[in-house]
C-alpha cells in the first residue's frame, strides 16, 4: 500500500496563515466576511498537501482532516498572537468594553460577567473554545471546498 504524505506540515502552515490573518488588526476584518481568513487557510493547507500527493487521489476525508487540523491550530496560534499583539487579555476585555457601543448590549453584559466569574483566565478559555469550534468548522469547509476545486477528474475506464 502506498503511503500518503504527511498531513501535519501543510495543516500547520495553513494554521499559521489563519493565526496571522486572525491576529493582525485590520487584516483580521477579513474574518468578518464569513470567516474568509480561516477558509483561505484551510484551502491553502489542502493545496499544499495535494502538491505532495504524486498521483494519489485527493479524498474528501483528506480535506476534512487537514481543514480541521489547520482550523484548530489556527485557533491556538491566533489566541497566542492576539494576546501578544494586543497586550494581554485584560486589555482586550477593556478595549471590547470601550467599543461595546458598536456591539449588542448583551455582549457587554457577558464580558462583565466573564470578568466577575474568573477574569482573564475565564475569558481566555471561553474565547479559545469558541475559536476552536468556529475555526474548526470553517477550516473543514475550506478543506472540502479545496477538495472540490483541486480534485483531479478521473476518466471512466
Amino acid at each position: 500500500m502506498v503511503e500518503r504524505p504527511d498531513k501535519l506540515r501543510p495543516a500547520l502552515i495553513g494554521g499559521a496563515l489563519i493565526g496571522i490573518i486572525s491576529a493582525i488588526p485590520i487584516i483580521n476584518w477579513i474574518n468578518c466576511f464569513c470567516c474568509a481568513g480561516v477558509i483561505i487557510g484551510g484551502i491553502l493547507a489542502v493545496h499544499l498537501y495535494n502538491k505532495n500527493l504524486d498521483g494519489l487521489e485527493l479524498t474528501s476525508s483528506d480535506g476534512v482532516t487537514i481543514g480541521l487540523m489547520a482550523g484548530a491550530s489556527g485557533a491556538l496560534i491566533s489566541t497566542i498572537l492576539t494576546s501578544l499583539i494586543t497586550g494581554g487579555v485584560k486589555h482586550q476585555i477593556d478595549k471590547a468594553l470601550e467599543f461595546s457601543s458598536d456591539l449588542p448590549p448583551e455582549v457587554e453584559d457577558a464580558l462583565i460577567r466573564f470578568q466577575e466569574m474568573g477574569g482573564e483566565m475565564f475569558f481566555i478559555i471561553v474565547g479559545l473554545i469558541f475559536s476552536l469550534i468556529i475555526y474548526s468548522i470553517f477550516g473543514i469547509i475550506g478543506g472540502l471546498i479545496a477538495v472540490s476545486i483541486f480534485k483531479k477528474k478521473q476518466i471512466p475506464q
Binding site: 448583551e106 455582549v107 464580558l111 460577567r113 468556529i134
Partner: peptide, 18 residues
C-alpha cells in the same frame, strides 16, 4: 441576557455585528 450575550460573543468572532 447572559445566554444571549454568549451567543452574540460567539458570533462576534466572525461578524462585525454593526
Amino acid at each position: 441576557r447572559f445566554s444571549s450575550g454568549l451567543i452574540y460573543f460567539f458570533f462576534s468572532k466572525i461578524c462585525h455585528q454593526i
